[in-house]
Nucleic acid binder design. Structure first.
Lengths: 344, 344
DNA sequence: GTGAAAGCGCTAACAT
DNA sequence: ATGTTAGCGCTTTCAC
């Protein structure tokens, strides 16, 4: 048994008494090899413990079967799940992901992309939110014809394949669950500004209020930044300004949990005094106090589908670009209930 | 501006009126090029929008500057932070990570490793726990001389570089914080069996009890599997068997949060009736009800250091293998306090 | 069904 | 300081 990877195709060829070409055919599973020759070559491969050199294959074939991954901060549950789904899908199809960045500094992104393309990735998956107003480098990639798929990243007016969750519908489901329970003063704590998911979930909130015949009172809307702290503080501000709120839709679970803490400290019982609905269904949501009603998003599927579409784009570059929205699911738990009876 | 990556070094050479070798020297930042030539070449590179082909460079230089990453499930906070730290460190040193697996099926790991070595990764980082009794493939890698570093994965009797957290000390700190508050009936909920961190944290628990002159009562120890549910159920069992417990050390935060829920449901106030200490300091710990006292681990540093040592191993293969333990920090929050006064 | 020749885009090891 | 020659390990193309 020889040492790893110093065995080359020509040594195998010599060992098997065939040409390198024939060995190549065998390792590429080509049909035009006689069963007998194939067996001899396979035996030689086993004897020498031969492993094809993927770098050399890539150079000759101009295929790397490697994808680039540009991702946000790993502490975000949504994106780690997207990546997990993407990774599984990629390998099932014979591809690998190169970790392009976890995006400490957004301004370095063009550099990351350059490093990825130098490494001949065949396509790039952007698994991060669209917070960056400067998207020239992404537009540049598209113009060069590099296959690109994004999740939760939209480029208005550009032809780009995007896989995302239907956040308008999600925000609507979350809010509707409160209107249907009879709530009339429903607050909202939004995520960071400029995120499309924030705009969309807010839109869903408004739609649900409208459906219930409620007007949209802007003083019921607080903005946070996805963190526990911001949910906590947003809730405190909201309680101060509108002490009559009986329900709150928080645009993610972390802020919802922060908001519940603020409510407890303010002496409001959940859900008796105030109902709370979150968004994401992070594992902690089921074990928060009280367990949190929330919107579950199919994140692994988003990652898997995005990868599938990316590979499709690589195989057939003329495929039309498209935007796919997956649907969410309302998960009912104890944090939400009927409002205190009111004199109507 | 030509299309991406169809420009080769020889086109640049022709454009600049030099040999390909000189271009190669420029892109590799070699000193032996005259300032004037360098400028001419750089101008040609810019004009043609040339990007070196990393695959071709790798084949010729036999260096890929690529590392493989074998990781556990992305839902684990510890490991996602390790990866984030590793990724940053890698790129700072000019390396990339290939995502080797998120380990759905442990038995596929040898296959993942083979695919990574075919792609000529220069080393492999195992960022996952040592749950697998069959480590033949890891031993095989070591014997072939492939640089390997693991985090939280120990191979008894093998010379392997490991970066981990000092879990004995961590378990001791967690428990000592309870003994010093005067608790005498201190329960423990352990993580999944066969994890080294479980053995170590339990060892720390025993040491702290001993230091406090307490005997170790096995009926105070419950075993969980790191999940909320298991913490919840473990706590219920513990309460049933030892209603006199006044404190509990849970070997991670998720189980601690589950345990707190069980305590609330059983009518025990935290920390007045029972104190709780967790482990990990996940973001949710600061916002649990009540906020959780816990042990913070420097996970990103574990990832960064592991990567640094891996690259060191690649650069100097004769470097001695070593085991590095980083220290933890006790984070005091409201879930733990002095016990109910007792007649001594 | 199999093989020979050429080359993928670059760097190493020599030249000069 | 720069150029020449010879590969890296494989696939592609075209023979036969």
């Amino acid at each position: 048994m020889l040492s790893r990877s110093r065995v080359t195709i020509s040594q195998v060829a010599k060992e098997a008494g065939v040409s390198t070409q024939t060995v190549s055919r065998v390792i590429n599973d080509r049909p035009d090899v006689s069963p007998d020759t194939r067996r001899r070559v396979q035996a030689a491969i086993a004897r020498l413990n031969y492993q094809p050199n993927a770098i050399a294959r890539s150079l000759a074939s101009r295929r790397t079967r490697t994808l680039g991954l540009i991702t946000a901060d790993f502490s975000d549950y949504f994106f780690t799940q997207v990546i997990a789904g993407a990774e599984v899908e990629a390998r099932q199809r014979g591809y690998f992901f190169m970790l392009g960045s976890t995006e400490r500094n957004v301004q370095d992104e063009p550099e990351y992309i350059r490093l990825l393309t130098e490494r001949q990735v065949e396509g790039i998956l952007f698994a991060r939110p669209s917070t960056e107003p400067d998207v020239r480098h992404l537009v540049g990639l598209l113009e060069e014809g590099v296959p690109v798929v994004t999740t939760a990243y939209h480029l208005p007016g550009k032809s780009l394949t995007v896989v995302d969750v239907d956040n308008v519908d999600g925000g609507r489901k979350a809010t509707r669950c409160l209107t249907q329970a009879g709530h009339r003063r429903i607050g909202m704590i939004t995520g960071s500004p400029h995120w499309k998911s924030v705009t969309d979930r807010s839109e869903g909130y408004r739609l649900a209020l409208e459906e219930a015949g409620l007007s949209c009172d802007e003083s019921l809307v607080e903005s946070g930044d996805w963190s526990y702290e911001s949910g906590y503080e947003g809730m405190l501000r909201l309680l101060g300004r509108c002490p009559d709120v009986t329900a709150v839709f928080s645009q993610n679970d972390r802020m919802a949990i922060g908001a519940m803490r603020a409510l407890r400290e303010a002496g409001r019982a959940i859900p008796e005094d105030v109902s709370v609905v979150g968004y994401d269904d992070v594992p902690a949501a089921a074990y928060s106090h009280p367990p949190l009603t929330t919107i579950r998003q199919p994140m692994q599927e988003v990652g898997a589908l995005a990868t599938r579409l990316l590979i499709e784009l690589i195989d057939k570059p003329d495929t039309e670009r498209r935007e796919v929205l997956l649907t969410t699911e309302l998960i009912l738990r104890e944090s939400c209930g009927a409002p205190v009876p009111q004199h109507t």
